[in-house]
Computed example of a mutant assay.
Amino acid sequence: MSSRLLRTITVFAGMVSVCFAGMVSVCAAALAATGTAILPARFAGWSQSAPAQTISDGANADVLQEYGLKDSSTASYTHGPEKLLLRAWRFDDATGAYGAFTFYRQSRMKSISLGKGGAEGGGHFVFWTGATVIDAAFSAGDAPDRAALQALAAGIRQPFGSAGVAPSLPHYLPATALDASSVRYAIGPVAYAHGGGALPANAVGFAADAEAVTAQYASRDGKGTLTLLMYPTPQIAAEQARTIGTLLKHGGVRGGSVALQEKRSGPLVSITSGDFTQDEARHLLEQVKFADYLTVNRTGSYVSEAAKTAKLLTGIATLTVVLGAAAIFLGIFFGGGRAMIRVLRGKPASTLNDEQFISLKLNEDASAPAGSARPD
């Protein structure tokens, strides 16, 4: 092979590599751009009045770190004369987002249907969906635009797989006499302490991957607190239950001694404290029953069969397009390269007219001298 031909092949391969690398970098940049923007520039008639900025929330940095904060953003929006301030936090998964939602939800807010869960009070909204928490505050005097917030929630990117599954522990809270605005979910000692946990944070066992949820319940004498703890295995739960039982006996838990009761059900440990009577505390604990993991009804993460089928068909179509594009690219690369080499060697680009085959001449007498007649 001549040096000129070798240089041509090298240049052609380099051009193809550069083009392919450029396509990959452009696609990666596009994906990165769509993945980093938490808040949209505009939605449902609202437009940003200034570029979004990162939230400076140093006072709650430790809490947000426990929930797995990835990034945050805040921006002001206008819709005619009306104004809206949005703050958004994005976490590693739905567990962190739900926990942060319970942390930012104020006690006087009433529950509303917004995203996966929302709360509202005096033109101030907090809701979560996917792995994102949104805090929306309308200006004083402006009518809250709930339809716009619904559109905002619908446009937030949802995580895939287990990252999009909401925690199951809050579903074990009995619904009767529950103050929904008081529910606090924690996966670390700092968030648990900020949420007003009745137990000492070091007694919960967060180092053993514990989850904790606390909630207020109405009683005849005031309000009492129910604490639910979930551990990876019943064995760990039994060990922690013994530690907590010792605390209850020695008064190491906030609340009156009458209301301090404890019960374990599988990996669940339940503790009552506060203004419950002994009978009220016992009745509340009896309502907490552990159900097998396979039978827990996670309504927040339910996916219909139609949605599963649509997702499957979309995946098949995407795979078909990718494989087709790869086949075309490889065909152009190998076929075009071979054609270019033939043209540089002075041959036609196509091989249809070539007679490139080896003839063995089996009908000729190999022993006959050249030019002699073949015997009959």
Score class of each variant (00 low, 15 high):
G196F: 07
G196I: 04
G196R: 05
G197D: 07
G197K: 07
A198W: 05
L199K: 01
P200F: 03
A201L: 02
A201R: 08
A201Y: 03
N202I: 01
N202M: 02
A203F: 04
A203C: 03
V204W: 00
V204T: 00
V204S: 00
V204D: 00
A207S: 09
A207H: 08
A207Q: 10
A208K: 09
D209L: 10
D209C: 06
D209K: 05
D209F: 11
A210S: 07
E211A: 14
A212E: 07
A212V: 06
T214H: 13
A215E: 11
A215R: 07
Q216L: 11
Q216W: 09
Y217T: 00
A218L: 13
S219C: 14
S219G: 15
R220G: 14
R220V: 13
R220H: 05
D221I: 00
D221H: 11
G222Y: 08
G222W: 04
K223I: 03
G224F: 11
T225L: 05
T225P: 10
T225C: 05
L226F: 07
T227D: 14
L228Q: 13
M230S: 11
M230L: 12
P234F: 00
P234S: 08
P234C: 01
Q235C: 01
Q235E: 12
I236Y: 04
A237F: 06
E239V: 15
Q240K: 14
Q240I: 03
Q240E: 11
A241N: 09
A241K: 11
I244L: 15
I244V: 14
I244Y: 04
I244F: 10
I244G: 07
G245Y: 10
G245W: 06
L248I: 04
K249E: 13
K249Y: 09
K249Q: 14
H250G: 10
G251M: 06
G252C: 01
V253R: 06
R254S: 14
R254P: 02
R254A: 15
R254T: 15
G255N: 10
G255I: 08
G255H: 09
G256W: 09
S257P: 12
V258T: 15
V258C: 05
A259V: 07
A259W: 09
A259M: 10
L260Q: 15
L260T: 00
Q261P: 01
K263P: 02
G266K: 08
P267Y: 03
I271A: 01
I271P: 04
T272G: 08
T272L: 02
S273H: 03
S273C: 07
S273A: 15
G274Y: 10
F276E: 08
F276K: 07
T277W: 04
T277N: 12
Q278R: 11
Q278W: 04
Q278F: 03
D279W: 09
D279S: 10
E280R: 10
E280S: 03
E280N: 05
A281D: 12
A281S: 15
R282T: 13
R282L: 11
R282G: 07
R282V: 07
H283E: 15
H283A: 15
L285W: 02
Q287C: 01
Q287L: 09
Q287K: 14
V288K: 00
A291I: 08
A291P: 01
Y293K: 12
L294D: 15
T295K: 12
T295S: 13
N297E: 13
N297L: 09
R298K: 10
T299K: 14
G300N: 14
G300Q: 15
S301W: 04
Y302S: 06
Y302K: 09
Y302H: 14
V303F: 02
S304E: 08
